[in-house]
Design a protein around this nucleic acid. Sequence first.
DNA 1: GTCTATATATGGATAGAC
DNA 2: GTCTATCCATATATAGAC
Lengths: 195, 195
Amino acid sequence: MARTAGSHSQTTGPRVHDAALKLFARHGFAAVSMRQIAAEVGVQAGALYNYTPDKQTLLLDLMRGHMDALLAERAQRGKHGGPLERLEEFTRFHIRFHLERPDAVFVSYMELRNLSPENFETIEALRRRYEDELEGILRDGVAAGLFAVADSKIATLAVIAMLTGVTTWYRPAGRLSVNEVETIYWDMVRKAVAA
Amino acid sequence: MARTAGSHSQTTGPRVHDAALKLFARHGFAAVSMRQIAAEVGVQAGALYNYTPDKQTLLLDLMRGHMDALLAERAQRGKHGGPLERLEEFTRFHIRFHLERPDAVFVSYMELRNLSPENFETIEALRRRYEDELEGILRDGVAAGLFAVADSKIATLAVIAMLTGVTTWYRPAGRLSVNEVETIYWDMVRKAVAA
DNA sequence: GTCTATATATGGATAGAC
DNA sequence: GTCTATCCATATATAGAC
């Protein structure tokens, strides 16, 4: 059975990424030293530079990996059904995807200002592509008379902000399953954009 | 005319706070040095320690100042009207208050993990007091049959996340006035919790 | 109250041995 | 590929002169 790189790979490269993601999420990019990352991996600091040219590139790789995974999963999903069905699917997907990788979400939203200007633009472009899919759903729904929003771009950002906020309070050990949380948020999203 | 401390005070103490708030918002607490703050104020680094015992306390003071101002303004507002009127007033207040102080909002939401555990609890307690007011409005509305939310606590956090998200995209030079933005968000909030 | 100077620690990154 | 050792820059915070 072939082994692909992933969270539990035993090779050093992915372990560097995993350790950096965990520590950046907990303490912030600027507050984490390369020595701390190395200690988490179980190597000395110098060894990290076999896997990244510098700390900035390590951050970029983490954020780009997250955005690539997000867009790749969206691309696999069918675009079947009317606006209402597509909006529900998007809502449930967004919550589930984000709750499954809290560290990557945290880093991707909090560390944008620690990207170099060039790297920032790279990530922003990916984020806009994701937002554009939701905006397209809302526009289609408005055109079909199913939805009513004053401004599709603002509604897009409002919905995404509401949904992403789930990551600030959800704990797997809590009283609600992910599916129950999805249903609660879907009820609010559905009504918020309803005609 | 008496002069009170504020954003444009000419005394060093408030200028240290203003400079720190601006730089922490732009670059992050951990990425900003005391020397940078001092340069922004126009003094040498050592002089800052006449106004704060250390960098951590400076962060706490900024965040506590923001939360105190938020709660003080809420306390001044009348609690008149039914749940629908109170929800609209809360929604419009939240957007306006947050858009008026983008740096303080940014720091207060992004730098929680850079607070010491003890200071974190101080700020969290203030934040919960603010959330509790909105939750009370939603509960009252549900009891009156005006609102329908599956879980008042989750609805509270969802609404606040949606509203606070406005700070990530709003620019004063843009096409919409604050009042127009308030109206757009109020339309979505009203529908999201409607019975 | 602000300055200069400094104690002390830690940061990112690199060189060269193994 | 990882180690040890180190370069060099910068960090927080303090001491004492003015």
